[in-house]
Protein backbone atom coordinates (compact mmCIF):
# COMPACT_ATOMS: atom_id res chain seq x y z
CA UNK A 1 0.00 0.00 0.00
CA UNK A 2 1.58 3.27 -1.04
CA UNK A 3 -0.77 5.83 0.51
CA UNK A 4 -1.20 5.81 4.31
CA UNK A 5 -4.43 5.08 6.13
CA UNK A 6 -5.85 7.93 8.22
CA UNK A 7 -7.53 8.13 11.58
CA UNK A 8 -9.88 11.09 12.07
CA UNK A 9 -8.11 12.88 14.93
CA UNK A 10 -10.45 15.66 16.04
CA UNK A 11 -11.24 13.93 19.32
CA UNK A 12 -11.62 10.41 20.71
CA UNK A 13 -9.48 7.34 21.07
CA UNK A 14 -7.23 8.07 18.15
CA UNK A 15 -3.92 6.57 19.46
CA UNK A 16 -5.46 3.11 19.90
CA UNK A 17 -6.65 3.07 16.28
CA UNK A 18 -3.27 4.26 15.02
CA UNK A 19 -1.58 1.52 17.07
CA UNK A 20 -3.95 -1.18 15.79
CA UNK A 21 -3.41 -0.16 12.15
CA UNK A 22 0.36 -0.07 12.64
CA UNK A 23 0.25 -3.48 14.33
CA UNK A 24 -1.23 -4.76 11.06
CA UNK A 25 1.72 -3.31 9.16
CA UNK A 26 -0.04 -0.26 7.72
CA UNK A 27 1.28 3.27 7.68
CA UNK A 28 -1.23 5.22 9.77
CA UNK A 29 -1.55 8.99 10.15
CA UNK A 30 -3.87 11.31 12.08
CA UNK A 31 -6.24 13.43 9.97
CA UNK A 32 -7.41 16.85 11.19
CA UNK A 33 -7.24 18.94 8.00
CA UNK A 34 -8.66 18.67 4.47
CA UNK A 35 -5.11 18.46 3.07
CA UNK A 36 -4.43 15.43 5.29
CA UNK A 37 -7.68 13.76 4.25
CA UNK A 38 -6.68 14.12 0.61
CA UNK A 39 -3.53 12.04 1.22
CA UNK A 40 -5.06 8.89 2.76
CA UNK A 41 -6.24 5.71 1.05
CA UNK A 42 -8.84 4.99 3.74
CA UNK A 43 -10.11 6.51 6.95
CA UNK A 44 -10.94 5.23 10.43
CA UNK A 45 -13.57 7.20 12.32
CA UNK A 46 -12.75 6.49 15.96
CA UNK A 47 -14.78 6.17 19.10
CA UNK A 48 -15.42 9.49 20.78
CA UNK A 49 -18.45 11.69 21.27
CA UNK A 50 -20.51 11.68 18.08
CA UNK A 51 -22.15 15.01 18.95
CA UNK A 52 -18.74 16.64 19.39
CA UNK A 53 -17.21 14.99 16.32
CA UNK A 54 -20.13 16.14 14.20
CA UNK A 55 -19.65 19.74 15.36
CA UNK A 56 -15.89 19.65 14.87
CA UNK A 57 -16.14 18.11 11.38
CA UNK A 58 -18.14 21.12 10.32
CA UNK A 59 -16.03 23.65 12.23
CA UNK A 60 -12.75 22.52 10.67
CA UNK A 61 -14.32 22.24 7.20
CA UNK A 62 -13.80 18.51 6.88
CA UNK A 63 -17.46 17.58 6.53
CA UNK A 64 -17.93 18.20 2.81
CA UNK A 65 -14.48 16.89 1.72
CA UNK A 66 -15.15 13.75 3.75
CA UNK A 67 -18.59 13.27 2.18
CA UNK A 68 -16.98 13.75 -1.21
CA UNK A 69 -14.30 11.10 -0.57
CA UNK A 70 -16.89 8.64 0.76
CA UNK A 71 -19.10 9.19 -2.29
CA UNK A 72 -16.07 8.48 -4.45
CA UNK A 73 -15.64 5.12 -2.72
CA UNK A 74 -12.95 5.70 -0.11
CA UNK A 75 -12.85 2.75 2.32
CA UNK A 76 -13.85 3.73 5.86
CA UNK A 77 -14.19 2.03 9.21
CA UNK A 78 -16.15 3.55 12.07
CA UNK A 79 -16.30 2.35 15.65
CA UNK A 80 -19.10 3.50 17.97
CA UNK A 81 -19.24 7.27 17.35
CA UNK A 82 -17.72 6.53 13.95
CA UNK A 83 -20.59 4.16 13.17
CA UNK A 84 -23.12 6.85 14.15
CA UNK A 85 -21.46 9.39 11.85
CA UNK A 86 -21.25 6.99 8.89
CA UNK A 87 -24.94 6.02 9.19
CA UNK A 88 -27.68 7.46 7.01
CA UNK A 89 -29.80 8.24 10.04
CA UNK A 90 -29.33 8.41 13.82
CA UNK A 91 -32.17 8.15 16.33
CA UNK A 92 -31.81 9.90 19.72
CA UNK A 93 -29.13 12.19 18.35
CA UNK A 94 -29.38 15.97 18.31
CA UNK A 95 -31.44 17.12 15.32
CA UNK A 96 -28.48 19.12 13.98
CA UNK A 97 -26.13 16.14 14.01
CA UNK A 98 -24.47 15.58 10.63
CA UNK A 99 -24.78 12.17 8.98
CA UNK A 100 -22.22 11.09 6.41
CA UNK A 101 -24.66 8.59 4.90
CA UNK A 102 -21.98 6.14 3.78
CA UNK A 103 -23.87 3.22 5.31
CA UNK A 104 -27.54 2.63 4.55
CA UNK A 105 -28.40 2.00 8.18
CA UNK A 106 -30.39 3.64 10.96
CA UNK A 107 -28.61 3.60 14.32
CA UNK A 108 -29.94 4.31 17.77
CA UNK A 109 -27.54 6.40 19.83
CA UNK A 110 -26.81 5.26 23.42
CA UNK A 111 -29.16 2.36 22.67
CA UNK A 112 -27.97 0.18 25.54
CA UNK A 113 -28.33 2.99 28.09
CA UNK A 114 -26.03 5.35 29.95
CA UNK A 115 -22.52 4.51 31.15
CA UNK A 116 -23.65 2.20 33.99
CA UNK A 117 -25.10 -0.08 31.28
CA UNK A 118 -21.84 -0.16 29.27
CA UNK A 119 -20.61 -3.74 29.00
CA UNK A 120 -18.26 -6.19 27.33
CA UNK A 121 -19.13 -9.48 25.70
CA UNK A 122 -17.81 -12.13 23.29
CA UNK A 123 -19.05 -11.75 19.73
CA UNK A 124 -18.71 -13.86 16.63
CA UNK A 125 -17.91 -11.60 13.69
CA UNK A 126 -18.36 -12.74 10.08
CA UNK A 127 -15.07 -12.63 8.21
CA UNK A 128 -12.97 -12.71 11.39
CA UNK A 129 -11.30 -16.08 11.91
CA UNK A 130 -9.78 -17.41 15.13
CA UNK A 131 -12.67 -17.32 17.56
CA UNK A 132 -14.89 -14.66 19.06
CA UNK A 133 -13.94 -11.02 19.45
CA UNK A 134 -14.04 -9.46 22.93
CA UNK A 135 -16.34 -6.53 22.26
CA UNK A 136 -16.35 -3.47 24.53
CA UNK A 137 -19.58 -1.44 24.31
CA UNK A 138 -19.39 2.07 25.81
CA UNK A 139 -22.59 4.14 25.71
CA UNK A 140 -22.88 2.29 22.44
CA UNK A 141 -25.36 2.53 19.59
CA UNK A 142 -27.00 -0.42 17.87
CA UNK A 143 -28.28 -0.74 14.32
CA UNK A 144 -32.07 -0.55 14.09
CA UNK A 145 -32.56 -1.05 10.36
CA UNK A 146 -30.30 -2.01 7.47
CA UNK A 147 -30.89 -1.20 3.83
CA UNK A 148 -30.34 -3.50 0.88
CA UNK A 149 -26.66 -4.06 0.27
CA UNK A 150 -25.76 -3.89 3.95
CA UNK A 151 -24.11 -7.06 5.22
CA UNK A 152 -24.59 -7.86 8.91
CA UNK A 153 -21.26 -8.94 10.43
CA UNK A 154 -22.26 -9.39 14.09
CA UNK A 155 -25.20 -9.35 16.46
CA UNK A 156 -25.47 -9.16 20.24
CA UNK A 157 -25.61 -12.77 21.54
CA UNK A 158 -29.13 -14.11 22.15
CA UNK A 159 -28.03 -14.97 25.69
CA UNK A 160 -28.09 -11.27 26.60
CA UNK A 161 -31.51 -10.60 28.10
CA UNK A 162 -33.72 -7.67 27.20
CA UNK A 163 -34.16 -5.71 23.98
CA UNK A 164 -30.42 -5.83 23.16
CA UNK A 165 -30.47 -9.55 22.26
CA UNK A 166 -29.90 -10.11 18.58
CA UNK A 167 -29.35 -6.44 17.77
CA UNK A 168 -27.00 -5.75 14.87
CA UNK A 169 -23.67 -4.30 16.06
CA UNK A 170 -21.31 -4.71 13.09
CA UNK A 171 -22.03 -4.07 9.41
CA UNK A 172 -20.36 -3.67 6.05
CA UNK A 173 -21.53 -2.07 2.84
CA UNK A 174 -19.07 -2.07 -0.03
CA UNK A 175 -15.85 -0.45 1.17
CA UNK A 176 -17.35 0.87 4.40
CA UNK A 177 -17.62 -1.05 7.68
CA UNK A 178 -18.61 -0.13 11.20
CA UNK A 179 -18.90 -1.59 14.65
CA UNK A 180 -20.98 -0.37 17.61
CA UNK A 181 -18.19 -1.64 19.87
CA UNK A 182 -14.51 -0.73 20.19
CA UNK A 183 -12.11 -3.24 18.60
CA UNK A 184 -9.32 -0.70 19.23
CA UNK A 185 -9.70 -1.09 22.99
CA UNK A 186 -8.66 -4.70 23.34
CA UNK A 187 -5.35 -5.04 21.49
CA UNK A 188 -7.02 -7.44 19.04
CA UNK A 189 -6.42 -6.03 15.56
CA UNK A 190 -8.39 -8.59 13.55
CA UNK A 191 -11.12 -6.11 12.60
CA UNK A 192 -8.52 -3.56 11.56
CA UNK A 193 -6.94 -6.27 9.44
CA UNK A 194 -10.32 -6.93 7.82
CA UNK A 195 -10.61 -3.20 7.06
CA UNK A 196 -7.07 -2.97 5.68
CA UNK A 197 -7.84 -5.81 3.26
CA UNK A 198 -10.64 -3.61 1.88
CA UNK A 199 -8.26 -0.70 1.55
CA UNK A 200 -5.77 -2.87 -0.35
CA UNK A 201 -8.53 -4.18 -2.65
CA UNK A 202 -9.66 -0.64 -3.31
CA UNK A 203 -6.12 0.54 -4.07
CA UNK A 204 -5.54 -2.47 -6.34
CA UNK A 205 -8.73 -1.90 -8.36
CA UNK A 206 -8.02 1.84 -8.39
Amino acid sequence: MSAPVGVLALQGNVPEHLDALRACGAEAVPVRRPSELAEVAGLVLPGGESTTLSKLLEAVELLEPLRERLRAGMPAFGSCAGMILLAREAIDARPDQHQLGALDITVRRNAFGRQVASFESDLTVTGVAGGPVRAVFIRAPWVETTGRGVEVLARVPGSVAGPAAGKVVAVRQGPVMATAFHPEQTGDARLHDLFLRRVRDSVATG
Binding site: N13, G48, S118, R139
Partner: peptide, 18 residues
Protein backbone atom coordinates in the same frame (compact mmCIF):
# COMPACT_ATOMS: atom_id res chain seq x y z
CA UNK B 1 -21.10 -10.32 29.40
CA UNK B 2 -20.21 -7.92 32.18
CA UNK B 3 -20.97 -4.32 33.16
CA UNK B 4 -18.74 -2.07 35.24
CA UNK B 5 -15.48 -3.75 34.16
CA UNK B 6 -12.18 -1.87 34.21
CA UNK B 7 -12.38 -1.93 30.41
CA UNK B 8 -15.68 -0.12 30.16
CA UNK B 9 -14.84 2.30 32.99
CA UNK B 10 -11.48 3.33 31.57
CA UNK B 11 -12.94 3.07 28.08
CA UNK B 12 -15.35 5.98 28.49
CA UNK B 13 -12.44 8.22 29.52
CA UNK B 14 -10.62 7.04 26.37
CA UNK B 15 -13.55 8.25 24.28
CA UNK B 16 -13.27 11.72 25.85
CA UNK B 17 -9.61 12.10 24.89
CA UNK B 18 -8.67 15.26 23.04
Amino acid sequence: TAVGTGGVKRGLADMLKG
